[in-house]
Design a protein around this nucleic acid. Structure first.
Lengths: 170, 170
DNA sequence: CGATCCATGTAAATGGTTACATGATTTA
DNA sequence: TAAATCATGTAACCATTTACATGGATCG
């Protein structure tokens, strides 16, 4: 799961895509659409929004009982920078960044696909090497069958992902 | 990622499969094989081993400068229980449990595959429903292209996984 | 003799979940 | 009128990472 601080970028991305959002609406968002790729609880969202406002990434506006947040120019800059940061071996971040791309013609789209393709190919080569290194004979397979299964599955998984990426990348 | 307390079970599984292990050896293990599916740092491993010894899951034995741990009868019971616990929608735990199965004839193997198959099928249906619910017309696809891509990718991913599971399950 | 590895430990910081808390509004 | 939903917040706890710390053994 989730290691480095990525919640603020998720919030920026959400508010940027949907326009003004309250903390409550964001917590609802995590129960829909984006919830398939990321989650945060309200006890994390509210203080984070306050911090981001302090940092000038968001401005707030009180309407009725709710506080609505919008992305500032500074916030847009931060979000754009994050979107352009090189991907690491972390499918979740790839999914999230992809989720935040609205337009098929956005040059970042192809960039992301290309980056992910390279990463997946590296991983594929690594796993293939592992398989050859560890499972040299049939006895080893028989005595570590679960490990063998899950490693060959991981390889097939990468193959499938690479195939998909190749079909989408230009 | 990783939410509930699963480290102790990983340690039990490792020590059970490899025999006596020291904290250091375990931390090295995470740089190999099992490191593809789980990781823990030494600062987590050492206190955890001590706690597990306190709880009677492990016994220790000092040789040279190292402390080696073995799984007790109680530890075996705990491990077996964990292995038999129903899976949740968490591929990591499926991978780990599979990794700990040594023998192709272990009835737990087929059980795990079957459970995972059901979970993946549920997830597949859910994602399919999501796709139909959210992307009702072409304009929605064009205006949320990244979301469309990643959702269709998630579906293909489940398809591929289900296909693999079906080929392994009896 | 300095670097790296073996081997173990604690402390501090980070990120996240769960629980506690409050109060207004809507719905059955 | 009780339950559910809207709406926001804090406190406590938990798992994990990073940093701090020590000391012996080996290797170049």
């Amino acid at each position: 799961m989730p290691k480095k601080r990525i919640l603020p970028y998720v919030l920026l991305g959400l508010i940027n895509n949907k326009g003004k959002l309250s903390g409550y609406q964001i917590s609802q968002e995590f129960k829909n659409e984006v919830g398939d790729f990321w989650h945060a609880s309200h006890s994390q969202i509210y203080p984070e929004l306050a911090r981001m406002k302090d940092d000038g990434w968001l401005i707030d506006e009180d309407v009725d009982k709710s506080t609505f947040y919008s992305v500032t120019a500074e916030g847009h800059k931060i979000l754009r920078n994050w979107m352009q940061e090189p991907l690491t071996d972390n499918e979740e971040i790839f999914s999230l960044k992809l989720y935040f791309i609205k337009d098929q013609t956005d040059p970042l789209l192809n960039n992301l696909l290309q980056q992910e393709l390279e990463l997946r190919q590296e991983k594929y080569d690594y796993l293939k090497g592992r398989l050859e290194e560890v499972f040299t004979d049939d006895a080893t397979i028989q005595n570590n069958y679960g490990h063998y299964l899950i490693l060959t599955r991981a390889i097939e998984r990468e193959e499938n992902h690479i195939h998909w990426l190749k079909s989408k990348v230009n």
